[in-house]
Computed example of a mutant assay.
Amino acid sequence: MPTQTDAAKPMAPNEKVKVHVHNPDALGPVFEVSEQRWQEALDRHPDIAARVDATFSGSPADLEAGLQRADALFCWDVPREALAQRAPNLRFVHVHGAGVSHLRPFDWLPPDVNLINSRGVHGSRAAEYAMMAILMINNRIPEMMTNQRQARWEQLFNTAIEGKTLLIIGVGNVGGSVSGFAKNFGMHVIGIRRTGEPRENVDEMHKPDALADLIPRADVVLMTAPHTETSHHMLGKAELDLFKPGAGLVNYSRAALVDYDALEAKLRRGEITAVLDVFDPEPLPESSSLWNAPNLIMTPHCSSDDAEAYTPRTLDLLMRNLGNIADGNPLENVVDQTLQY
């Protein structure tokens, strides 16, 4: 399915762009588009605000009413059946997040409707978390936390991180930001990205087919790739077995990029350490054996969503795209439905 990026005919000067914001309570305060946040976004974009007519919903019934008139929809998820009939004027759907794998396959999306994500919005918070996790692995903190839970005094020593190798799988906005931090700590940075094109602060850039050759060189592997059909279990048992003894894994991106069953087996054998922020399903059930897996630190998918800035920055992106609709300009952050991100 092709990506829709062409500019459309601009709206008349007195015609307002109708946007509907679906904002269920279950999303929580970090992701809430409150009245105050919406007004502050309008205040930051006064020229666009004058051309916007917004409606809001928290329930399915109110959502349906809003869809009937909407040019743009802002949401995390939406019932997808017969969307073209339910939202006849729709121009784009902006997903309140960077990942869109929960919306695949994209056959529900009408051919003239763009899908927008929030990639690039996370800012420095994501890079800070990833670098913290890399430093924790180098300082053997996951192992020390295992010893602490078992009341076991065992001094664990390591060497400085300078000169060690970081492999970043998926050098996009977040991976590229982390590479700058890693270079400041004197690390050798290897990157993998679909195009293989070089990027600042990455000493070597490769395509995904080089993964098996690169893993044995890494002291830490950082997953910042999108989850697609082709990247599913990109780190399976065979790839995890290529990690050198004592190496660590940080998964910031999506759980399905890694075979967690195979990872857990290696954690329990003491062959690897890990910091994980993403799981499947979420919330992670109490019955999951990962809760007591050794050599592992888990954070509950909160690594990069800045409590104060994430939603305001996302609304800034939404406002720019509402302005783009009004003026007939190309949209920002259009998801390539073929690449699935």
Rank of each mutant, 00 (worst) to 15 (best):
L211R: 04
G246Q: 03
W153H: 13
L90A: 12
N138E: 15
G270N: 04
V334F: 06
G196R: 02
L315H: 00
P216R: 11
S288G: 01
A61S: 13
L235P: 10
G270W: 07
Y310N: 10
R119P: 00
K9D: 11
Y310P: 04
H102G: 04
S57K: 07
T195M: 06
V52L: 05
V335S: 00
A262C: 11
H122Y: 10
L317M: 12
V221M: 13
A8E: 12
Y252K: 04
K244N: 11
M136L: 14
D47A: 15
D209F: 09
S253W: 00
D259Y: 12
R268Y: 12
V17N: 01
G163P: 01
L83P: 05
R104P: 05
M205A: 03
Q337M: 14
K18E: 13
V335P: 01
V113Y: 00
P245K: 10
D261Y: 10
G246K: 08
K237C: 14
Q4P: 09
N14A: 12
D6M: 10
I169L: 10
R217K: 15
I137D: 11
A82C: 05
A225Q: 03
R140G: 14
E282D: 08
D203E: 09
D47L: 14
V258Y: 12
P79W: 02
G28Q: 09
D71T: 07
L67E: 02
F181K: 05
Q150R: 15
G176L: 03
F74P: 07
P281N: 05
L315N: 00
P330H: 08
P142M: 14
M144C: 12
G66E: 07
S231L: 05
S179W: 04
E332G: 06
M298L: 04
V30L: 05
S59T: 15
G191D: 03
S179D: 02
P300L: 01
R152C: 14
G123N: 03
T299I: 11
V221C: 14
H102N: 06
L322R: 01
V335L: 02
L339C: 08
L284V: 00
A265K: 14
D25A: 15
K18C: 13
P281W: 09
P226V: 06
E162A: 15
F31H: 11
I137C: 11
A130R: 09
E128A: 03
A133D: 07
S304H: 05
V334N: 07
R254T: 04
S287V: 08
K16V: 05
H22I: 04
C302W: 07
R44Q: 07
P294D: 04
A238Y: 00
Q4R: 10
V93M: 05
G236Q: 02
L263M: 10
P46H: 09
P300V: 01
D47I: 08
V30R: 10
G196L: 03
Q68K: 15
P245D: 11
M1G: 11
L73V: 13
M144N: 14
R269W: 03
G248A: 04
P300Q: 03
R140F: 15
H102S: 08
